[in-house]
Amino acid sequence: MIAEMNGIAAHAGSPFTPGYGRAPLVFGGHEDELDELTRVFQTLDFGENHSVLISGLRGAGKTSMLMMLQDAARREGWLVISDDASAGLMDRVMETTIPAMLDTLEPATRTRLSSLGIWQINAQLEYVDRHRQTKPLLRRDLIALSEHIGPDAGILITIDEVSSGKIRLRELSRFALEVSHALQAGANVMIVFAGIKIDLDALLEQEHTTFLRRSRQLDFRRLTPGETRHVLDESIRIGGRRIEHDALNQLISVSQGYPYLIQLAGDYAWRNNPRSAVIDQAAADVAHEKAITAVQRRVISRVYQDLSEKDREFVQAMAQDSGRSKISDIVKRMDVSAQYVQVYKKRLIDTGYVRSDGHGYVAFSLPYLGEYIRSMNDEPAAVDDGWDAFPPPPSV
Rank of each mutant, 00 (worst) to 15 (best):
L89D: 13
D71R: 12
A60G: 10
R58A: 13
L79F: 02
R74Q: 15
R75F: 02
L66S: 12
L57I: 02
I81D: 10
D84H: 01
M65R: 06
G61W: 12
D84Y: 00
D84W: 00
L89C: 10
G77K: 06
E76N: 11
G88V: 07
T63N: 07
K62Y: 15
K62M: 15
G88Q: 04
I81F: 13
S82D: 09
A85I: 02
L69D: 00
L69E: 00
V80M: 11
K62V: 14
A73F: 07
A87C: 11
D83T: 12
S86N: 04
A85W: 01
S86I: 10
D83M: 09
R58E: 11
G77Y: 05
R75S: 03
V80H: 07
R58F: 12
E76T: 06
L69P: 00
A60I: 04
G61R: 13
L89A: 09
A60P: 04
R74T: 15
L69S: 00
D83W: 05
E76V: 04
M65P: 05
M68W: 12
M67F: 03
M65S: 08
R75M: 03
S86C: 05
A73P: 01
L57C: 02
M65E: 07
W78L: 02
L89T: 12
S86F: 08
W78G: 01
M68L: 14
A85C: 03
D71G: 13
M68G: 15
L66T: 08
S82F: 14
M65N: 06
A60D: 10
R58K: 14
M65T: 06
G61F: 11
A87Y: 15
M65Q: 07
S86V: 10
L57S: 04
L66V: 05
M67Q: 06
A72N: 10
L79G: 02
S86A: 09
G61H: 14
L89Q: 11
T63M: 08
M67G: 03
S64W: 15
I81Q: 10
S82L: 11
A73C: 08
A72F: 10
A60C: 09
R74L: 15
L69M: 00
A87W: 13
W78S: 02
D84Q: 01
M68H: 14
G59H: 05
R74G: 15
R58N: 12
L57R: 04
L79D: 01
R75L: 02
I81N: 12
A87K: 14
A87V: 11
T63G: 07
A72S: 14
G59C: 06
W78M: 02
I81Y: 12
G61E: 13
G59Q: 05
L57F: 02
A87T: 12
M67E: 07
A73T: 06
S82G: 11
S86H: 04
A73N: 08
G61Y: 13
S86M: 05
A72D: 12
D84N: 03
L79C: 03
A85R: 01
V80T: 13
D84K: 01
G88P: 03
L89W: 09
G61P: 09
S64F: 15
D71W: 11
M68R: 15
D83H: 08
V80R: 09
G77R: 05
G77E: 06
Q70N: 08
M67T: 02
G59A: 06
L79W: 01
R58T: 10
D84T: 01
V80C: 14
R58P: 04
G59K: 08
M65F: 14
